[in-house]
């Protein structure tokens, strides 16, 4: 999370300490029964121009498989420093992943988009499985995924 907050502090030229304007946001990701092993999921944010800003979460511990999260890998060059301390286990088929993060208020309604790349062993790579604009209005409404994610919701 630090990389993202630091980046935001720089790019949005916030004067106040970022942490003072943060709030807990819960991401709920429900997986479909896609019939494979645990899915790797990369959560990251791009700005209004589509440029990578930072990573929020990585579900999946083995860095050698990160190249199958193609968009995330392309944006970061596979640099594991981007996800240092924000890595968890992969998510099984039919399971649900809930993560709560302290996110800066400035992330919402400012043209930022949250992306989720997904990959499963021996199955197709699914970059950009989810792409959802971060807005106050969009909070709480479910977004459908393309292949592995049944739906995704963020709430605060």
């Amino acid at each position: 999370m630090k990389p993202l907050l630091t980046t935001l502090a720089l790019t949005t030229a916030l004067t106040a300490p970022a942490i003072a304007l943060a709030r807990p946001v819960t991401f709920t990701t429900a997986m479909t029964n896609y019939g494979g092993d645990g899915a790797y999921l990369a959560y990251y944010v791009t700005d209004a121009s589509g440029a990578y800003v930072g990573s929020l979460w990585m579900a999946g511990g083995k860095s050698k498989y990160y190249k199958h999260l193609t968009d995330w890998y392309r944006a970061t060059g596979g640099d594991t420093a981007e996800i240092n301390g924000i890595t968890g286990a992969s998510v099984g088929a039919g399971r649900q992943l809930e993560i709560t993060l302290d996110l800066a208020d400035a992330l919402f309604d400012a043209g930022y988009t949250l992306h989720i790349d997904a990959a499963v062993e021996d199955m197709r790579d699914s970059p950009n499985e989810i792409a959802v604009p971060l807005t106050a209005q969009g909070a709480g409404s479910a977004v459908k995924g393309r292949r592995y994610i049944a739906d995704f919701t963020y709430k605060y």
Partner: peptide
């Protein structure tokens, strides 16, 4: 050893 990252991956994917 490779799965646990104990060997160099030698990733050679060119830059996008």
């Amino acid at each position: 050893a490779s799965t646990f990252g104990l060997l160099p991956e030698g990733d050679s994917t060119p830059a996008f």
